[in-house]
């Protein structure tokens, strides 16, 4: 079981997670990030640092995000992101929208 980036990660790309990932298991496209389950070591370092709490341990991920498992399995289609980037211009608005 790995960790999952849910669809809450969308239009913000704060990328705090990639900086604390000890194994560089995050991949990303223009919109969001994905976790490569085969590389993730389940350390949970990323969960707390996400400003919109988009990442869950699969073990206690709410039902509504189950479809995100398949979405994360496409991680390898995108490049590894292992350094922090500027958030997207829509990030603060998105954060507010999600109630954080």
């Amino acid at each position: 079981m790995a960790h999952i980036v849910t669809n809450k990660c969308q239009r913000c790309r704060f990328t705090h997670c990639v900086e604390v990932c000890p194994v560089a298991c995050f991949h990303g496209d223009e919109e969001r990030l994905y976790i490569d389950a085969d590389t993730c070591i389940d350390c949970s370092a990323c969960i707390e640092v996400c400003p919109v709490r988009a990442i869950y341990d699969q073990y206690d991920m709410p039902e509504e995000y189950q479809t995100c498992i398949a979405i994360n399995s496409k991680a390898l289609d995108f490049p590894v992101i292992d350094t922090k980037h500027e958030p997207l211009p829509t990030a603060m608005e998105r954060k507010k929208e999600l109630g954080y």
Partner: peptide, 11 residues
């Protein structure tokens, strides 16, 4: 802090 915390710290 856990293993990964040290990565951000070293950065």
């Amino acid at each position: 802090g856990i293993i990964g915390t040290n990565r951000a710290d070293s950065v």
